[in-house]
């Protein structure tokens, strides 16, 4: 164990700004990437569903039989 107290841990030997600045920003960009990732999935699915509804509204659904 490197740290005598929680205070010493957060202080990082006086380098708190640099160490925690690195870890915090890394965490933030990872969270942002994950949010964007799942938003993209949601947007894609809803867009495709909308497109499909638009298509089937224009012409009767030509129900294709199960492809082999």
């Amino acid at each position: 164990m490197n740290w005598g107290s929680a205070e010493a841990f957060w202080n990082m030997g006086g380098a708190a700004t640099f160490v925690w600045g690195s870890y915090a920003v890394t965490l933030i960009v990872i969270v942002v990437e994950l949010i964007l990732l799942f938003q993209r999935r949601k947007n894609t699915v809803s867009r495709l569903l909308r497109l499909r509804r638009g298509r089937s509204a224009r012409r009767q659904p030509a129900n294709v039989s199960e492809s082999p």
Binding site: A15, F18, V19
Partner: peptide, 15 residues
């Protein structure tokens, strides 16, 4: 918690 302090740089090396 396991990696020790660096002799040259102190704690900042943890980056």
């Amino acid at each position: 918690f396991i990696a020790p302090t660096d002799a040259q740089q102190g704690e900042v090396y943890r980056v």
